[in-house]
Design a protein around this nucleic acid. Structure first.
Lengths: 214, 214
DNA sequence: TATTTATGTGGACAGTGTCCACATGTGTGA
DNA sequence: TCACACATGTGGACACTGTCCACATAAATA
């Protein structure tokens, strides 16, 4: 399985791949370039042949994440071609699922560690494409007169805020589905996917009520 | 100004205070216990007399942040006693302002570094109080029949999602106010407070449309 | 006043990101 | 085919980090 040659052959990819795994298992604050290299079985300096520094590797990992979001949204457009509302909900659900299953990747992508505006090139482009794929979903809804008229970018940003907010609370473990009374309102964890989906549906309804064409 | 005595006198407070400053200026990933200690002018081990480890100091900083949010919300209830809608908007605006001015503190509070559910004691309590102060604002609106009926906790979570999402995008520099067409839709920075407020107002409208009593 | 307790100090250790000089392959032009 | 440039990987070094330890000092207490 392991090739013993001096040159790895596909180290850049391996770094992003193992980096993502380690990010998810060890967490944002304790991930280290050296451990990634060690895991791959390569010297602690090899990564520097492919990335200028640790930050650049993190950016590559995030870029990868954004591309997957875009791809998912594009697939959803086809899968729910007749219902932009479903496209929007499933898109949200997907982001939230990522937030629940890979909270550290989610935080890397949408947290402060990485500022797409600050870095030119691939990362910024990937992030822009992700937001544009959401704008397209909004436009689908407007064309079918299911969503209110208005600047689709603003609606998309609004939707994205809602989605991000939910995802963020899920990712950071601050949301709990069952909370009947004021006294027990608290931040907590969502135990299983079914509950998660139901909860998201409920909260999403409030947002949809604001965006739906009457 | 500086007392030269062996004992600092109020080191715990100084750690939280200077820690917050350094967090905001240096950023989440490059803040260090040793530099905080150095800045205060105390040995690199002194902090360990007040916090078990770095994580606990970070939690104390976050706790402080949550308490300030709660205090702000309580003040807003009085200031806009006749308009829960204003209470809600100004509360959101405040969170978003914190996100814009102290993005690192914001990220510490709402990011994955800290999980209130995991830590008992003061931090969890402070975080719960913050969310409950928002629930109270929602209830104010329901009492005045300005907001739709329904579980106030769910509405508050929904509002919080919206607010968090906006704040997150602002904090991480992924939001830009001017983006007319699909082609130019991108993540960018918000240049000034006036624009920020206007933009938040617009996006918030979508959410309010869903929560307002008709 | 004597002693316990709270608080601060310095040294040590393993681990980190990043720089450097050097080693080893791989591909290219003569 | 061969010499050589270039891409890629290695090990050593450095400053810095979080955390542990034993020790020092001040404050509180008996």
């Amino acid at each position: 399985m392991q090739q013993e040659s001096y040159h790895h052959g596909d180290l850049r990819n391996a770094l992003v791949c193992i980096g993502t795994e380690l990010l998810n298992s060890k967490g944002m604050s304790s991930i280290s370039l050296r451990e990634i290299a060690r895991t791959i079985g390569v010297g602690h300096n090899a990564p520097y042949r492919h990335f200028r520094n640790k930050q650049q590797l993190l950016e590559a990992i995030a870029e990868n994440g954004f591309r997957q979001l875009t791809a998912k949204n594009t697939r959803l457009e086809l899968e729910f071609a007749d219902s932009p509302e479903n496209q929007l909900f499933e898109s949200a659900m997907h982001v939230i699922t990522v937030a629940a299953h890979e909270p550290n990747l989610f935080e890397l992508m949408f947290g402060g560690q990485i500022k797409p505006a600050d870095c030119q090139g691939n990362l910024k482009q990937a992030a822009d494409e992700a937001i544009q794929s959401l704008v397209r979903i909004i436009q689908n809804g407007q064309k079918k007169q299911q969503f209110i008229v208005g600047d689709p970018v603003k609606l998309a940003l609004s939707a994205m805020s809602m989605i991000q907010g939910l995802a963020m609370m899920v990712a950071s473990g601050k949301l709990r589905p069952v909370s009947q009374s004021l006294e027990t309102a608290q931040m907590g964890w969502v135990e299983n996917p079914t509950m998660l989906r139901g909860m998201v549906l409920q909260l999403f309804d409030v947002f949809l009520a604001g965006i739906k064409q009457k």
